[in-house]
Design a protein around this nucleic acid. Structure first.
Lengths: 232, 232
DNA sequence: CGGGAAATTGAGTCGGTTCAAAAACGGTGG
DNA sequence: CCACCGTTTTTGAACCGACTCAATTTCCCG
């Protein structure tokens, strides 16, 4: 298993402020693992044996409720750390992560975490920033779910997706991984029926273009106005 | 301004793993500040000049939406760190904190944070745990708001409040700071009217006892069953 | 004892869910 | 290349939980 090229990951936020030799040292301990589309990377409530950095692809992270409903926590894009259960004081994963497209991740054993942060405290600081921004995302979502009705929540979700995983195409910005109406419903606390209705209405108005597991935002600004409470 | 006694704070999670001398060193840089009931400790979007540890009292932390609605993020209890905007990579506070009873906090200037964690990396590690558990709380809330209807959400909110700030009394467990129906509504994404109706119904059934800005849980187990989806 | 905030309770309304069915799409195998 | 099949999406109709609107009561503090 060949070592990972430093230049591929040197710019990631997690490794900010590390010297090249330190980075090499870290990478030497990591495994690079392929996850084909549909494969589970880790499972909710399972022992948190590893933590990860996504090199390529996209993951869908979701929580399963006791009665079997899924709630999408987020989608992981290339370059992000994930599965850092140990760092936040857990011994099990709080959610399940599944590859939505063929993906590749760097994998470290969780047991190495305490030693790694002892040697490179910068890692803890950088992870703190990452977890902090996720906390802000989560709070933003709580605020939205508390105060906005469905249409605006969907608009916000789409804008966030576009920002995090958008790809510019001729017509606008498209979410660059397969995403269903059901996924959007599970991100916004509604049903796939309502999402379908809303997207259809937007399509009629020319804000977005749909497709099977595909959403393209044609008029980001219009959508933004709608998300912020501009007249319907 | 007398220095704070080490023994008062030595057991706080934030300071876990620090040597007594290190702790003294930290405390020497802190100010102890009193916040009378009703006073704002920091304001959303204001420059994050300080970070804090609450020594005594309770704070209400909330976000204000553009259209003026409030959403309660959490209540801070004694012993907790708060206002660590700098640590999570922000220059402004993401929410407003107000004392709900007379309170006292240790205050450090935010500019000291980088220096402090450089010297005591344990601080970053401990803060990471704290922020991590807040992230889990926030996600739990998102899941609840996505999948549960109002009554169960209120039950969950009350149980969480009891756990974090409950005080055992003869009759059961009471929330040990003044909390209104409106507060509960802003924690659960509903209206004070609905909260009032639900609490009244519970009171009739003997699960809780109410009062002006007061809630006592008489039957925690019954409430728990209800929260987890047991028959209404 | 008066004033204001907090809480209670009723009635009417509606956004979004639930239930139901059909249509569209894309991959697969003959 | 085309027909088939499972998944995804669309759309209609009925229903209901919670909100809104409105009024009254209770309680605490000054």
């Amino acid at each position: 298993m060949a070592s990972v090229d430093r230049t591929l990951v040197a710019d990631l936020p997690l490794f900010a402020g590390l010297a090249p030799e330190q980075l090499d040292e870290l990478l030497r301990e990591a495994q690079s693992v392929r996850y084909p589309k549909g494969m589970t990377v880790f499972q909710q409530d399972a022992e948190a044996h590893s933590f990860f950095v996504l090199l390529h692809g996209h993951l869908r992270v979701y929580k399963l409720t006791p009665d079997g409903q899924q709630v999408v926590v987020r989608f992981v894009s290339a370059g992000e750390v994930f599965g850092v259960a140990m760092a936040i004081g857990r011994t099990t994963y709080p959610a399940t992560a599944v590859a939505v497209v063929d993906s590749i991740a760097l994998v470290w054993p969780s047991v190495a975490w305490p030693r790694l942060i002892a040697k490179h405290p910068t890692l803890a600081v950088n992870t703190l920033q990452t977890v902090g921004s996720r906390l802000q995302d989560a709070h933003a979502r709580v605020v939205e779910m508390s105060t906005e009705q469905v249409e605006r929540r969907i608009a916000h979700a789409l804008l966030r997706l576009a920002q995090q995983s958008g790809r510019k195409v001729e017509a606008g910005v498209e979410i660059d991984f397969p995403i269903s109406r059901q996924d959007v419903a599970e991100m916004t606390g509604t049903t796939l029926h309502t999402v379908s209705r809303v997207l259809s209405a937007w399509e009629d108005r020319g804000f977005v273009a749909g497709g099977r597991q595909k959403i393209t935002i044609l008029e980001p600004h219009r959508l933004f106005v709608l998300a912020e409470g501009g007249l319907p």
